[in-house]
Design a protein around this nucleic acid. Structure first.
Lengths: 193, 193
DNA sequence: GACTGTAGGTACAGGACTGTAGCTACATGA
DNA sequence: TCATGTAGCTACAGTCCTGTACCTACAGTC
């Protein structure tokens, strides 16, 4: 097996352990056992467990961002409700189609080491900063009683994450379509100024 | 120190480690070190780490439920929007006033061992089952386009949890009042049939 | 066919944690 | 004052994990 193939395979095995048993379960030893190789092979690719996990996080961040960027151009509309609905639909479709990646991106937070938690926190902060102006614009367009835009943006992110977990856990019951319909109905029933 | 005092103290120390460093950081050894006692003291109170954690989870569940039950009688109204708003306010106030307990109840999920994750999942399922009929009633009363009651109930729970985390992380910025206002404004702007 | 780079393995020393056996110290009641 | 129960300790054997030193096997190149 080539170095690059091995590296990717090791990251896959690590990701599988984390998503199925949490961060508490990981160790160089465990990954080596699951991959049926000697531990030294892992050490020849990564400095230690910390570097190993960091590499996985980087790969996950990079690939997740790539997938998100891929669908962003499709989501353009004059109506903020349509933008929101289509964004949810696109996001959940991505999640459903690459469960291995998104299980990792969306599930693990709390058991993770402190520096990783910080990193995830910062990533979410970045998404929030991206979403905030769009939400503010949407709420202003709507008029009527002024809704706290920060909390509304947070509500959207939290809901997106939670629905992603549902789609991953029970894709038959919780489909991107169902959530898109839900959001569309919900937004339609909110009064316009 | 009496057996009961020691037991409670050990559970406190365990809770502090989990909330500050996650489930990955816990061990009998670590708790003993933090509590400045020999490991054997812990073994005389709990069978092993699993039983130790189980005891903490039970204490947390019991106390959390007790606090929730304590404020439930105050939340009675004819208007579903008022019920929702006051429930959020009451919940976040409880959370703010007992951060040690609620940090544990609301934060840790993913790093935890599989059986504990199952337990938390079931607890949330129970809360969902409790909330569902109320939400369904509220949505029916409202009339207009029919909103998926299950997803709406989930949205409420997820948001409550997330806001609880915010209140715990930055109580100055994210107050129960701010969230209650947000919910009130949001519900007020949803069209009535 | 010898040379070299690299994938992969074995072996070892050391550390962290577990669970148990067995000890000490002290308080309380007969 | 002695007996007894219990809080708390030290010590030890065993497991799992880490990181490194050093070996083997093989593929490609001269």
């Amino acid at each position: 097996m080539s170095a690059e193939e091995r590296r990717e395979q090791l990251l896959d095995v690590l990701a599988d352990i984390i998503t199925s048993e949490g961060y508490a379960a990981i160790s160089i030893d465990r990954v080596a056992r699951d991959a049926n190789i000697a531990r030294t092979v892992i050490y020849s690719h990564f400095a230690n467990l910390e570097g190993f996990v960091a590499a996985l996080v980087e790969r996950t961040e990079r690939e997740a961002l790539r997938q998100i960027r891929g669908v962003l151009p499709d989501i353009v509309d004059d109506d903020p409700d349509v933008i929101l609905t289509e964004a949810i639909r696109a996001f959940l479709t991505i999640v459903r189609d690459d469960p291995r990646l998104w299980r990792l991106a969306v599930l693990p937070v709390d058991g993770a080491p402190a520096d990783l938690r910080d990193r995830i926190r910062r990533a979410k902060q970045a998404v929030l900063a991206l979403l905030q102006p769009i939400v503010t614009w949407g709420l202003e367009q709507r008029g009527g009683p002024q809704i706290d835009p920060e909390l509304f943006a947070r509500l959207i992110i939290t809901t997106a994450e939670d629905t992603a977990r549902l789609v991953l856990a029970e894709p038959e019951t919780y489909t991107p379509e169902r959530f898109a319909d839900f959001v569309a109905t919900l937004m339609a029933s909110v009064a316009r100024g």
